[in-house]
């Protein structure tokens, strides 16, 4: 029975043909002030979106977001890109997310994915995991891990997507 089921499942995938791009799945997570937020509403008037998964306990994630913040004004002026930083901190540290993010001067749209529902829907296994989305929410590229200087390559892609290059 199980085998038939799996076969049916797998054959379905084959007929579907793997697609590189997918629109943002609908998951209900929270904003910093405790309201529900539907992730399919992540949008930027047709301009590029950077979606970055991070957590308070993840040092490279914070380094990546710090690096984004250093260039954010300039990037926004040039391409109109918008950054969403999704914290996957659970209830042990959700209360510390807003003070840390604001205290670091981050000016991103910050969302709380306390039980990992959005993380699972986006197939994020390890963080930092950063997606570049086009204006329709399709994944254009994605990257896991952060090394010093990786923000420049990402920004090249943002520019290309915004038609600035």
């Amino acid at each position: 029975m199980k085998k038939i089921l799996i076969l049916a499942f797998v054959s379905m995938f084959i007929s579907v043909a793997f697609s590189q791009e997918s629109a943002i799945p609908k998951v209900i997570i929270k904003t910093l002030d405790g309201k529900n937020f539907n992730t399919s509403e992540i949008a930027n008037d047709g301009k590029p979106i950077i979606l970055s998964f991070w957590a308070i306990w993840c040092k490279p994630c914070q380094k990546e977001l710090d690096a984004f913040m250093e260039h954010y004004e300039e990037w926004q002026a040039e391409t109109g890109v918008k950054i969403y930083a999704v914290s996957i901190d659970d209830s042990r540290s959700t209360a510390r997310v807003a003070p840390l993010a604001k205290g670091k001067g981050w000016d991103f749209d910050i969302l709380l994915d306390a039980n990992g529902d959005f993380k699972r829907a986006m197939n994020v296994n390890m963080i930092p995991h950063t997606f570049l989305l086009d204006g329709k929410g399709n994944v254009v590229s994605q990257h896991t891990s952060y090394f010093e200087g990786a923000e420049f390559e990402l920004y090249e892609k943002v520019k290309k997507l915004a038609g600035k290059k």
């Binding site: 209360a95 510390r96 807003a98 003070p99 993010a101 604001k102 205290g103 001067g105």
Partner: peptide, 8 residues
């Protein structure tokens, strides 16, 4: 909590 840009 209290948070505004630059302090939390």
């Amino acid at each position: 909590s209290y948070s505004r840009s630059g302090i939390g």
